[in-house]
Amino acid sequence: MNIKLINIGFGNIVSANRIISIVSPESAPIKRTIQEARDRGMLIDATYGRRTRAVIIMDSDHVILSAVQPETVAQRLTNKDDIQDEG
């Protein structure tokens, strides 16, 4: 099995194969999704106290907050140099 990992900022890495979407945290539905994940204990805050700029929705129902722009995370997904293969 080929595991692809992506850096979401500050040394935090997630499995690229499990990402469903990468969205901006500005809209009310996304803020509601974040609060619901927090209530369920499925929220992972990887911002290190900085402003949340990207919300990553995983297929495991986890919601990850990142301080990196959504465009940057998406670019890292498509850029072969930033994806690490773990065998």
Rank of each mutant, 00 (worst) to 15 (best):
M1I: 13
M1H: 06
M1S: 10
M1C: 07
M1F: 07
N2D: 13
N2Q: 13
I3H: 10
K4Y: 03
K4N: 08
L5C: 11
L5I: 09
L5Y: 02
L5N: 13
L5D: 09
N7R: 07
I8V: 10
G9C: 02
F10I: 04
F10C: 00
G11I: 06
I13V: 15
V14P: 07
V14T: 02
V14M: 03
S15M: 08
A16N: 11
A16M: 12
A16L: 11
A16E: 09
A16I: 07
N17C: 05
N17F: 02
R18S: 12
I19P: 11
I20S: 13
I20L: 08
I22Y: 00
V23N: 11
V23L: 01
V23S: 09
S24W: 05
S24G: 03
P25A: 12
E26I: 08
E26V: 11
S27H: 02
S27N: 04
A28H: 05
I30T: 12
K31D: 05
R32A: 12
R32Q: 12
T33N: 05
Q35S: 14
Q35R: 08
Q35F: 11
A37G: 04
R38D: 12
R38A: 12
D39E: 13
R40M: 14
R40P: 02
R40D: 10
G41M: 04
G41P: 13
M42W: 01
L43G: 11
L43C: 10
I44G: 01
D45Q: 01
D45L: 08
D45A: 00
D45G: 00
D45I: 01
A46N: 07
T47G: 08
Y48F: 12
G49A: 11
G49H: 09
G49S: 05
R50G: 14
R53V: 01
R53G: 00
R53E: 14
A54F: 00
V55Q: 06
I56A: 12
I56V: 10
I57D: 05
I57N: 02
I57P: 06
D59I: 10
D59A: 11
D61G: 15
H62Q: 15
I64L: 06
I64A: 12
I64T: 07
I64C: 09
L65T: 07
L65K: 02
L65N: 02
S66C: 02
S66G: 07
S66P: 05
A67N: 04
Q69G: 04
P70D: 10
P70A: 10
E71F: 08
E71W: 04
E71L: 15
T72C: 15
T72G: 11
A74G: 14
A74V: 07
Q75F: 12
R76E: 09
R76G: 03
L77W: 10
T78V: 04
N79R: 09
K80A: 14
K80W: 05
K80L: 07
D81A: 15
D82W: 15
D82N: 14
I83M: 07
I83A: 06
I83K: 08
Q84K: 12
Q84M: 11
Q84A: 10
D85Q: 03
E86F: 15
E86I: 13
E86W: 15
E86G: 00
E86K: 15
E86L: 15
G87P: 09
